[in-house]
Amino acid sequence: MSTILECKNLTKRYGNFTALDQINISLEGGHIVGLLGPNGSGKTTLIKIINGLLTPTSGEATVHGKPIGVESKKVISYLPDHTYLNKNMRIRDIIDYFEDFYSDFDTKRAYDMLAKLSINPTDKLKTMSKGTKEKVQLILVMSRHADLYVLDEPIAGVDPAARDYILNTILSNYDENATILISTHLIADIENILDQVIFIHNGHIRLSSTVEEIREQNGKSVDALFREVFKC
């Protein structure tokens, strides 16, 4: 399997504060990877660098061997941790927008998923509840045939039914050879769908392993191990 994402000695400093310190990550295709860490551990900083929203202080991130830029943005589908669409736009117009800019966008899939939730494409985003807005964003992100999906806290603050919907949508829509990077601090909710985890803390990688390895070697869940590693 070819390497999709590679981070080499990635470092990000804000003044004296080091948000990421010499991070090395290599992700291959076909995996669902959990980026796990407490709040403020550097998860979002890493995700922003991968998506080209931040420039690293040193080191580099590459996607398919190329630096972050127009080419990487073509193959990364990104779900930020808050709403990021123009609330005055109709869903239909947002879909047009995605269709125009992302050649891998599957318009039919998006409309199908909206129909399943009985969301009217002519509705404006601002008329929707917070939960529905989040689902619409997830639908847009998962309607792309991307190589790398980066989902920042997709299940934070949602009810169990919505969580099931979100996980199911993720699992049934990503391409077989694609990789999903999910950041979260709610590990128990999500660990069954992961096959690889990266623990990140204070800008350092504390552990990088497969879920089966953790369960076989430690006889405990990732969640339990996480609680142990990050014990306060």
Binding site: N51, L53, V70, K73, Y78, P80, Y84, L85, N86, F101
Partner: peptide, 17 residues
């Protein structure tokens, strides 16, 4: 709004320079 607020997340992740 489109460059530096929440919508910037979309603007700056479009596959355009």
């Amino acid at each position: 709004r489109t460059m530096y607020s929440d919508e910037g997340y979309l603007t700056h992740t479009l596959p355009v320079s």
